[in-house]
Nucleic acid binder design. Sequence first.
RNA 1: GCCGGGAUAGGGUAGCUUGGUUAUCCUAGGGGACUGUGGAUCCCUUGACUCGGGUUCAAAUCUCGGUCCCGGCCCCA
Length: 415
Amino acid sequence: MIQCPRGTRDFLPDELEKRRFYENKLRHTARTFGFREVETPIFEDAELFILRSGPNVLKELYAFEDKGGRQIALRPEMTAPVVRMFVNNMSNEPKPIKVFYFGQCFRYERPQSGRYREFFQFGAEIIGSATPETDAEAIALAYAMIGQIGVKNYRIRIGHIGVLRQRIADAGVPSDRTAEVLQKLDKKLYDEARPLMQDMGVDDEDIDDIFSLTETVGGVEVLDRVPGEAGDWLRQVVAYLDVMGIKDLEIDLGVVRGLDYYTGMVFEAEAPALGAEKQICGGGSYTLSELFGGERVFSTGFAIGFDRILLALEKEGSSYDPEGIDAYVLSVTDDMRVKAAEIAAMLRADGVSADVDIMGRKMAKALKFASSARARYAVIVGAKEMDQGAVTLRDMSTGEQELVSVDSLADRIRG
RNA sequence: GCCGGGAUAGGGUAGCUUGGUUAUCCUAGGGGACUGUGGAUCCCUUGACUCGGGUUCAAAUCUCGGUCCCGGCCCCA
């Protein structure tokens, strides 16, 4: 028996219907913010992902050589492809460019709860704008998406990578070692960060100051203590969010978000219900386009872990009831089977979702099937009714029946 | 990459400690009892020991390895 590969899943009809329902909620929310959907290839030139990443990333990349000798990789995320698309095809479009995407990504990781090798990301990018309003717009969309999909318990934390980066540079950390230091600070590994920075010739006073900066955590009021341009910037972002009705924010200047390409505001959201893999959203402002041969363009974007928000919903007790079909058409006797097929076709042509018995079942079994298919109505086609050009319409939830003429059947079912 | 727990019909399970007839029960699927009415009952039927090696007269059970799942660490673009 062949199973699906490690870390991948089959989605059965009930599950997929639920996923489509929530995907469409996310799409709808993004559209209400003026974002338009785009799609990029599932595989790309491997270099696209290698360009912006260290060896860790390479380890988890699904990469292979195709029959033409090209180095190909399944996309591990979608920001780089979207930025590539921008550089290739959209760089002369009116700014800002607001796009969103939804699709599967692949990482060769050890699967655990909320982590798969094939997983689904929903994300949005605002390209070509660098203002506090841009950042606020991205955060507001993420906030609206998480909220409208129905996750109740989550936290959004906002930071600014410029604060720490500037402070670290001022203290004398060489630029090629910044990432190393940030990594330790992100994990709050002060015992390891201190000797590291001492080696680089940073004095203890600066080190303590840097540490206290990463401890700047709390409500928006802690922003009062953040100096410089970054402080001003974040205060403006927060002010815009405030008028958009988003007030329960956390500020955390220790949010560093792994990668080098973030340049300013960074944010993430987590759902405590999820356990170890609780981060459901991450993003920030960045410049990537110059890496792919374009001009340097500022962008802000984020990605939502679709599988994880669904998991969070489930853990919070939300459920989704699959929809059934409108009508199940069955014949009383075999000589009515052709008529039943004809009526089903007519309903379908009129936009009513209709299924019809194709297994030659007797009436009782066909009704049983209709109820397991969650049909709203059973359309019973029998000789007695057909004499009057009618069928019996049975409401499957109440059991009430009425005689309905074939001509008015579709309208009657649509209500 | 590391640590721990698991895997028995489509789903949920008993059996495993202490090897021994035809592997338990519920549910689900197909057919029938009820000849024009479902979600009730009854009958028939389909269907499983994760895979491979070892120990043994005999392995679902003991043992080793692989695979996969779950929880955690690392990582998380």
